[in-house]
Design a protein around this nucleic acid. Structure first.
Lengths: 201, 201
DNA sequence: TAATCTAACTTAACAGTGTTAACATTATAC
DNA sequence: GTATAATGTTAACACTGTTAAGTTAGATTA
């Protein structure tokens, strides 16, 4: 009677296989330059098979994005234990966020700019992974507010300001690699430091 | 002998016509959803005619982006006269930048995230429009540094921090319209205010 | 075991894409 | 008025996402 479970497992396996192949191609060649046929080729199935597992190409991308967010969340939550200094934790979180974006630039762009429509359905609404990521930021910030380190009492605004800063510097560094930036790590440090100091005043 | 000039004028006219049609379609339908045939249809020429004026679709987009940057530059330079308070001018410039992005969200995204490769050839290199935009920001910032308002002596870094902040908040507001943002203008104000205060300390 | 059913997958096709090469047309120059 | 250059068009190629119809293999039932 284990046949049904086996079949389900096999089905899930192929789904993962498609996702892995798709991510790899999206990341290397860019979403628009990847065709369903290329993905199919990579996994050695016919193109239409993919449609048995994903509604369409956008749905496939959505699933890739969801994985990216899960990955980001995992990365961030590793920093949570460090409860000593809330400002230091926030600083580290910001740094980790930018680092994540620069480590997986294509993933980051796919998730946060190429297809933010996906947020409507999965990304930021209640119970979603995206919401969990922002909740993490909320926690970090609210601890700083609670300890009267930050002037602003409004946790939402404070969090959004922080997000703007790290999102901005991440995308600029990704999108304009040839721009004569200040030394990269120095810039990231300064952005985060400036924002935190600005929130204190 | 004015025939040559007339021909050149007519040619330039059709070029503009193509650009206008392309921008309108890109902005309404999104770059990827606009085909050369659609553009051709709009201006009532055959699709291949466009290739007599632009190398390819990307080149067409580049020209649209260049216009956007020119537009942004014009918007910003209107604020330059106000020499009284450099911090206030910088604040206003930041605000104008974000407002510009939100007023022409598709243009902004096309220029700053969809096709930043275009920066390589036209956008940010010497003498380009993009460089002029960043030079504007440099001027605003350096005035604040010169008057010892900002701690940081490094004008480049300071400018880049400012750019990160406004770029970040602009894109977040564009890309996640359904996110429960703080009231929009308040958020923009706070981002700019926070960054400036952070640079002062 | 043989017949049936169903889930998984493929083939063939449609309408659309960017782009090129070859052709047609028009307006200028001699 | 004829040659010449500029301008525009037609037809085609190889590709795209996606659907409908057809095939095959494995499990279920009699």
């Amino acid at each position: 009677m284990g046949t049904k479970e086996r079949r389900a497992r096999e089905k899930e396996q192929l789904r993962r296989q498609i996702l892995v192949a798709a991510r790899e191609l999206f990341v290397n060649d860019g979403y628009e330059n990847v065709s369903m046929r290329k993905i199919a080729n990579k996994i050695e199935y016919s193109p239409t098979t993919i449609y048995l597992y994903f509604k369409d190409k956008a749905d496939l991308l959505d699933s890739v994005c969801k994985d990216t967010l899960l990955n980001l969340l995992k990365t961030l939550e590793r920093l949570k234990n460090d409860k000593s200094d809330p400002v230091e934790t926030l600083r580290k979180s910001g740094q980790a966020y930018v680092e994540f974006g620069l480590k997986y630039p294509q993933d980051y762009k796919l998730t946060f700019v190429i297809r933010p429509e996906f947020q409507k359905g999965l990304g930021l609404q209640e119970g979603s992974v995206g919401e969990k990521v922002f909740n993490y930021l909320r926690e970090m910030v609210s601890e700083c507010v609670r300890q009267n380190i930050f002037r602003q009492v409004d946790i939402e605004t404070t969090g959004q300001v922080m997000w703007s800063a790290v999102h901005g510097v991440t995308l600029l560094l990704i999108d304009f690699p040839d721009f004569p930036w200040t030394e990269k790590d120095k810039l990231i440090d300064t952005v985060i430091h400036t924002t935190i100091e600005g929130l204190k005043v």
